[in-house]
Amino acid sequence: MYTEAVFVGMGGQGALLAAQILAHAAVHEGKNVVWYPAYGPETRGGTATCTLIISDEQIGAPIAPNPEILVAFNQTMLDKYIDQVKPGGMVITNSDLCEPITREDLTEYRVPASSIALELGNPKVLNMAMAGALAMVAKSVESESVNWALENQLPEKIKKTIPINMQALELGKERVQKTE
């Protein structure tokens, strides 16, 4: 099992935290993990990107300039990063904020992450809907592990949001759809 994904979003969309929760889940399963955030000038203009690699084997290169999977939270970041995705790779988009992609060599999965979050009454949990979609598609971690990570690794001050995050995760898994 080897998953190599780059999460891209705007500040406040929770892209980094979503990837980190998946990272904790993978660690909980005994897998090897690298989570690497963009820092410095790359984050100017309020963008948030990070690399997440999950593997059963020892991980070599800790960064993925041409990732197998792109998890895009909005159109701006999708446009900025789509050309970097490895030929034949995969893109998971927030369908509420992203147009269908035009690169034909990529597999596209769309999940209405913003709608899911609004439906649950907390716009912030769109990130866990995105995480759920990735977990479903890449099969890199089990739901139980992600739930464990939410229970044990969320910052103290947002602990009360654990149940709604878990719901967002499940709805993301349920509603992610491959574009045929």
Binding site: V27, K31, N32, V33, V34, W35, Y36, P62
Partner: peptide, 9 residues
């Protein structure tokens, strides 16, 4: 900077 900023198990 990569060693310093990345997270691993």
């Amino acid at each position: 900077g990569v060693i310093g900023q990345m997270q691993e198990a």
